[in-house]
Simulated scan of single mutants.
Amino acid sequence: MWKFRTGTAWRDVPERYGPWATLYTRFCRWAADGTFDRMLRAAQAKADAAGDIEWLVSVDSTVVRAHQHAAGARKGGSVTRPSAGPEAA
């Protein structure tokens, strides 16, 4: 958890936690085998039983970022192309 809280590289994890390569290998194994998912579900179940979780969710689109190229329309406007289908009468 220290590594992700600080945003540091694996090689910079303090020695008190053990060799960085061992930590990385264990992290990858736990991520692959679902250990973190099980830990999260257990923590959520415990907090839910204690009434510590509010399950109401609100999504506010003002915090959802769009890709930089999705910011506006094409420059010069759109070109209207004739349809290849039959004419509308």
Rank of each mutant, 00 (worst) to 15 (best):
F36I: 01
K3Y: 01
Q68S: 13
T22C: 06
P19A: 12
G77W: 00
P82E: 09
W10D: 11
W55L: 12
E15L: 06
V13T: 11
A50T: 05
D60C: 07
W2G: 02
H67W: 08
T6A: 09
R11E: 15
Y17I: 03
A88W: 02
D60R: 04
V64L: 11
R16H: 08
D37N: 04
G18T: 02
G34N: 06
A49L: 12
W2A: 03
A31F: 03
A84C: 00
A88N: 07
W10T: 09
H69P: 02
G51H: 09
S83Q: 03
S61T: 02
A71T: 08
S83G: 03
A89E: 12
D37A: 11
D52V: 04
S61K: 00
V13D: 00
T22Q: 12
V57L: 15
G76R: 00
A31R: 10
T8L: 07
R65V: 06
F4V: 00
T8Y: 02
A70D: 15
D12E: 11
Q44S: 01
P82D: 04
T22R: 03
G76I: 03
L23C: 13
V79L: 14
A9L: 11
A45N: 12
G85K: 05
T62K: 07
K46N: 08
T6Q: 08
G34F: 05
F36T: 05
A89N: 07
A43I: 00
A73R: 10
R16C: 13
A47C: 07
A45M: 07
K75V: 15
T62M: 09
D48C: 03
V63Y: 02
M1D: 07
W30D: 08
T62Q: 13
D52K: 10
S83L: 03
T62R: 14
R74L: 13
